[in-house]
Amino acid sequence: MESINKYFFKDMSVMFGRSMRHIFRSMDTIVTVCITPIAMMLLFVYVFGGAIETGTENYIDYLLPGVMLMTIGSGIAYVAYRLFLDKQRGIFERFHSMPIARSTILWGHVLTSLISNVISVVVIILVALLIGFRSSAGILEWLAVFGILGIFILALTWIAVIAGLSAKTPDGAGAFSYPIIFLPFISSAFVPTDTMPSVVRAFAENQPVTPIVEAIRNLLSNQPVGNEIWIALTWCIAIIVVAYIFAIRIYKKL
């Protein structure tokens, strides 16, 4: 084992370099990932926004955190798709028959997912700035925002690993992401939960998107962050742990 672990970082950098090349050679995936959230943002700001009462001056400021999560939701579908292709094309088999640190094969994909999703989120923030988003947050708050987003990306990425490794068709690999993309709609991402009927409201207030959105919203508007940040982190870490255990179990059976 030792002789293999010695190469962990070297193998890791090869795996990571490989899948980052995939990202940069198919920048259209970043565009595809961003286009729906951008459309949503425009729709909500310029069409529905005027009619929505959020208690904030600038609706885009209220909206942005939810749109960020949607972007990540559609970005991880490609993670599942890339893993599925590697499995189907026999690339995993080739790597597994070589003397390399096995875990690096998955971690290369996970790290790439983190970077590519952060790129997509940055694109969304830039578009938001163009249509009037303004934030009073300082460096520390922004770091905290990206910290939360990073952990959220990791949580969804491990779910994507499960989907990609167990899918039978390329379409099946990405299908798991649709419910995740729509989860922000039944949360406080677009409208406050106060006006929702009680059952829907109970769901909205107790699903992971709401505390994550509110934590990010408070950080960006320089408001004190309450309990929600801890609830948000607990959700994400719990998902990471459970999804990781299942993903590794499936991976070992390949």
Binding site: R18, R21, H22, R25, S26, R89, G90, I91, E93, R94, S97, M98
Partner: peptide
């Protein structure tokens, strides 16, 4: 050893 499987296991984007 090295293995060449039944279907070409190559990274098609590289």
């Amino acid at each position: 050893i090295s293995l060449t499987g039944q279907f070409a296991a190559i990274d098609e984007i590289l």
